[in-house]
Amino acid sequence: MAQLRQPVDFEGFRSALADAQSDDEKLESYISFSFTEFRNIPDSLFKIAQEVEALEPESLSKKEAYQNFILAFAWRQSNRDSSHYYAERASGQLKELNNHVNYLRSQNLLGSEYARYGNTLDAEAVFVQALEYQSENDVTEYPEHFFYGNLGNIYSRVGAYDLAIEMYSRILEKTDRTSDRCNIQATLASNLAKIEDYEEAIKRLTPCIDEETLIPPIASIVRSNMSRILVDSGDIDSGLEYLEQAAAISYQNRVPNMELAHQVRLGRLYIEQDMLDEAEEIEIRILDDRFRSGPPNILIDKHLFLAEISSLRGDYDDVLAHSNRAIALARQMKMTHLLKDVYSLRSRA
């Protein structure tokens, strides 16, 4: 279960299991750690699902619901249909059990799965239903801003930037923690940039750039989004500088998924600026085993970048190899809408 992908409190996990007085307590420990420590480590989640199967708690319905919830997270990175199937089953079972917090967690996962694969209408419906359920049952233990944030992401994706800005603004009304506020400000600023209000976007985000207490993932996001805003506004040099900072932070701190996404985006920006030597350094870095797995959309971008840089060198066999991997992955995960640039590059090769 020990994987070198992110710092995990294995000692705390095993201590919680050892201290549990019953299988019911163990079941609660499994679900708690699955949602926090292990949510991005599929192999560990599959192992936990096996261990849960061996438990004999008082409520077999709760055991099955928790096991389905764990499997939904376990399949999230590799099989869209399985992740959706288990998330939907867990959601219905947890609702019947009046297990409010974990029901809302499962709804958040289910809606996120819809959104990740382009089904924005169903995603919106799931998040709105979750907010209504949370209000009706007065569930204060689960942050409602998760749903507002996801709704904002959906509206931003479909170009409804005014609605996205409204959702993010609602979150800021109820958020005091500096890292949380800067995380939302980064996304809000990006949407302001979409309506070409670059001055307001930069104004919103600048205080977070200077904030020294941010945790690495948020510090990286803030710089990454500032980079995109500056590049879109025409300030390429400053945008490149901020993206280099973002990539360095996420890489040095091994921020899951984000570190690969930033490396790929930086590499592609280097290519656009004819900085081939720097792009090749990125190529060497992301060919490491450390970046072998990840969300399919990011892996597709990775293979697109590798194909692009191979094309610039005239290594057309490599272009075809990398494009083949991107195409196979997109077909497997039903994400062929991401392949336009891949097919174009493959055709030229």
Score class of each variant (00 low, 15 high):
Ala246Trp: 01
Leu205Trp: 02
Phe146Leu: 11
Asn40Pro: 00
Lys340Asn: 07
Ala74Met: 08
Asp235Val: 07
Tyr155His: 10
Tyr242Gly: 03
Arg268Pro: 00
Ala20Tyr: 08
Gln245Val: 02
Thr336Glu: 15
Tyr30Trp: 12
Arg331Ala: 02
Asn119Lys: 12
Asp317Gln: 13
Ser15Arg: 15
Leu17Ile: 13
Phe291Gln: 04
Glu144Asp: 09
Gln332Ile: 02
Glu144Cys: 01
Gly12Lys: 00
Ala261Cys: 03
Thr178Asn: 10
Ser250Trp: 00
Tyr103Lys: 04
Leu97Asn: 03
Ala201Gln: 13
Gln252Tyr: 01
Ser347Ile: 03
Gly118Glu: 10
Ala160Phe: 14
Ile209Cys: 03
Leu163Glu: 15
Lys47Ala: 14
Arg290His: 13
His145Phe: 07
Arg89Tyr: 10
Asp318Ser: 14
Ile236Phe: 10
Ala326Leu: 00
Ile195Pro: 03
Ala189Phe: 03
Gln273Phe: 12
Lys203Glu: 14
Pro143Met: 02
Leu287Ser: 11
Gln273Tyr: 13
Cys182Ser: 09
Ser190Tyr: 10
Asn98Arg: 12
Leu214Lys: 05
His322Gly: 01
Thr178Ile: 14
Leu276Gln: 13
Ser34Ala: 15
Asp288Ser: 15
Ala321Phe: 12
Tyr251Ile: 01
Ala130His: 08
Tyr114Gln: 14
Asp180Arg: 11
Arg313Tyr: 03
Ile195Ser: 07
Arg5Cys: 06
Ala246His: 03
Asp138Leu: 13
Asn150Gly: 04
Leu339Thr: 03
Gly118Thr: 09
Gly294Phe: 05
Ala115Asp: 07
Glu211Pro: 03
Tyr148Glu: 06
Leu329Ser: 13
Ser238Val: 04
Phe13Pro: 02
Val126Glu: 15
Gln50Phe: 02
Cys208Thr: 06
Asp235Thr: 05
Glu11Leu: 04
Ile171Trp: 11
Ala49Gly: 07
Leu71Cys: 05
Glu113Trp: 06
Asp176His: 07
Val128Met: 12
Lys63Asn: 09
Tyr270Asp: 08
Tyr155Glu: 12
Asn98Gly: 01
Asn297Ser: 09
Arg265Asp: 14
Tyr103Pro: 08
Asn137Trp: 15
Tyr117Val: 12
Phe10Ala: 01
Arg325Ser: 13
Gln21Val: 07
Gln332Asp: 11
Asp341Gln: 09
Thr140Asn: 12
Ile41Asp: 01
Asn183Thr: 02
Ala326Glu: 04
Gly314Val: 12
Ala349Glu: 10
Val158Ile: 15
Phe291Leu: 11
Ser250Gly: 02
Tyr148Leu: 09
Ala186Thr: 05
Asn119Trp: 06
Ser220Leu: 09
Gly149Lys: 07
Ile229His: 10
Gln3Ile: 14
